[in-house]
């Protein structure tokens, strides 16, 4: 009897609130996905039709065949991949320096990288726009990637430094005592050990770049247009075409949500930079 009552209590006090939270967390996304498979006649009906009698993939077919969306997806893929590679290419050596050397200005420079991560985008975006225009980089992949590097570099440096700090220094010291050069130590000992951290950092930068809107909107144009900018333009272009819009939104969100779930465990440590001891 006591057993059963406490089981009921647990159900009411823990599992029911947990279920409510999950419903709150997924409902808007699920609603978008449902809308995307409704025929236009159902979308335009009020009171709302919660589930279409005749689900359709027509909006997805239209989106891929009749709009610029496939090209936008490709642009986003290229931009996010390049941002991720550029971020890692610059940050891995920097994190190595911060983690493995004591040098004048180390603390100062780490503080600066943390501080610029807090800068408002509006503080940088206008001069970046002016500079890119002068250099002819507006509406190019490089332009958008450089915009995204403003947040990718400081974030990646911090996350990677804390990851490298977790790998004992004795390992690279032992390798160097055994006669390995610094380069060999890095490529054969340190990088393989740091691979999981480097991969999660890269994935996080990829997701952040894929999701980013303001830089992409200011720095791109006709030639290069990422999905977030394209979707926002759809809102103006096809005000009432909710089928197309929700199909696009569902597609754009799916890959990054899956990637994000993979890396979020590593992320907590990076985001609060050591405040949560895992």
């Amino acid at each position: 009897m006591i057993e059963r009552r406490s089981r009921l209590r647990r159900l009411l006090e823990i599992e029911l609130p947990a279920l409510l939270l999950v419903v709150v967390a997924v409902a808007p996304y699920v609603w978008m996905a449902i809308t995307s498979i409704k025929p236009d006649s159902d979308i335009a009906r009020f009171p709302v039709v919660y589930w279409p009698e005749m689900p359709t993939l027509g909006h997805y077919a239209d989106l891929l065949a009749r709009t610029s969306f496939p090209k936008n997806l490709l642009d986003s893929l290229i931009v996010a991949t390049c941002a991720s590679l550029l971020g890692l290419g610059l940050s891995v050596p920097a994190a190595y320096a911060f983690s493995r050397f004591g040098f004048v200005g180390r603390r100062f420079l780490m503080t600066q990288f943390l501080t610029i991560n807090m800068f408002p985008i509006v503080l940088m975006i206008i001069p970046l726009f002016v500079a890119m225009r002068a250099l002819g980089l507006l509406d190019t992949v490089l332009g958008v990637v450089l915009g995204h590097a403003t947040f990718a570099i400081p974030f990646a440096i911090w996350m990677l430094t804390s990851y490298l700090n977790g790998i004992p220094k004795e390992l690279d010291e032992a390798a160097m005592v055994d006669g390995a050069t610094r380069l060999q130590t890095i490529t054969r000992i340190l990088l393989p050990l740091a691979a999981p951290g480097i991969a999660s950092t890269g994935i996080y930068v990829f997701v952040a770049s894929w999701n980013e809107y303001l830089f992409a909107m200011m720095l791109s144009g006709q030639n290069v247009r990422t999905v977030t900018v394209a979707l926002q333009l759809f809102i103006g272009e096809y005000t009432i075409q909710w089928g197309l819009l929700t199909a696009g939104g569902t597609l754009v969100a799916l890959p990054v949500t899956i990637l994000f779930l993979f890396v979020q465990r590593h992320l907590v440590g990076g985001l609060t930079a050591g405040a949560v001891k895992s």
Binding site: A25, M32, N211, A253, V256
Partner: peptide, 25 residues
């Protein structure tokens, strides 16, 4: 599942909620 909102692009969040708040539908 609870992490999903954190992963989504802001533009899509804006879009989803604009649709949910729509006056007519």
């Amino acid at each position: 599942l609870i992490i999903i909102p954190w992963a989504l692009p802001s533009v899509i969040i804006g879009l989803m909620f604009t649709w949910i708040y729509d006056y007519n539908l």
